[in-house]
Design a protein around this nucleic acid. Structure first.
Lengths: 142, 142
DNA sequence: TAGCATATACAATCTAATTGCAAATGCAAA
DNA sequence: TTTGCATTTGCAATTAGATTGTATATGCTA
């Protein structure tokens, strides 16, 4: 898939949730697609700043796209919102956990980490789990 | 137990972690002891403001007492730090997961919740996990 | 391509949280 | 009890993430 068809696909994805496919939004989604882990408001804004996109616009777009269901807005416990694309199939109920390094702040998606069956039952007694977060020190920071 | 002996006990607890038992700290700990759920920086500061305690002092004391191991500083997903007293026995090294209700802020310890064996291996590839957090909406808030 | 609702840039604002520093105070030792 | 001094406090300024107001510009549908 070349860059042009990528952009077309991105525009379609944005329009599919009822938003206009503006350059700032295309750039935002492209950025999130090539990122390997969720990006903060600030990280996205800093990148888009090079394209002349205003910080407030970047923030509004992230929030709007999250509200529209295109992105997931995650709060990992360090007072920063992080955004990642919500691919088809991954609904709201997708529970793939995140690992947050308390030293460097890096975030890793842990697709394959699951709770044991008994654990899921136990946690359901308490409430409906919407997010699983592991915190610790990543290998680079040991 | 009367108020006087309460205060004596509170002062002892503060001194036990190597801090001076100042009026502001005594008031802070007393407040947290009578609270039924963790309090935010701002809530504590607002209460102590009536005693003439400065906001910066309130914030510093909460952080200092948390660093000293007297309080737990929790992040419940709404970008506010919340503090609660860490009673004896609850150490820093308790690795059992916690469930945080994003609505009411209640915290539940999930002693029995575990990761699958494969998940532990997978997460160890990323780093050393020191905390497991489940977030969602508790049964009271459904 | 014209019309208009949506989106943007720019600037101001808000709130949580932190920091610098001189003055005040807890508390341990004399 | 008093003294010495490190710790703590008050006050003010500041940082940083995030949000909001508004006039202008632009996507996109008819």
């Amino acid at each position: 898939m070349n860059a042009r068809s990528d952009i077309k696909e991105i525009k379609n994805a944005i329009r599919a949730v009822g938003l206009r496919a503006t350059p700032a939004r295309v750039a935002t989604l492209r950025l999130l697609r090539q990122a390997t882990s969720p990006m903060t408001h600030g990280e996205v804004a800093a990148e888009l700043d090079e394209n002349g996109v205003d910080k407030a616009t970047a923030f509004r777009n992230l929030n709007d796209m999250a509200d529209a269901g295109l992105l997931r807005r995650a709060e990992l416990g360090d007072h920063l919102y992080r955004f990642e694309e919500l691919r088809d199939g991954e609904g709201e109920h997708d529970l793939h956990p995140h690992f947050l390094c308390v030293d460097c702040g890096s975030v890793t998606c842990l697709e394959e980490v699951k709770l044991t069956v008994g654990s899921r039952k136990a946690s359901e007694q308490v409430g409906e789990v919407s997010e699983i977060l592991l915190r610790g020190r990543c290998n680079n920071c040991q």
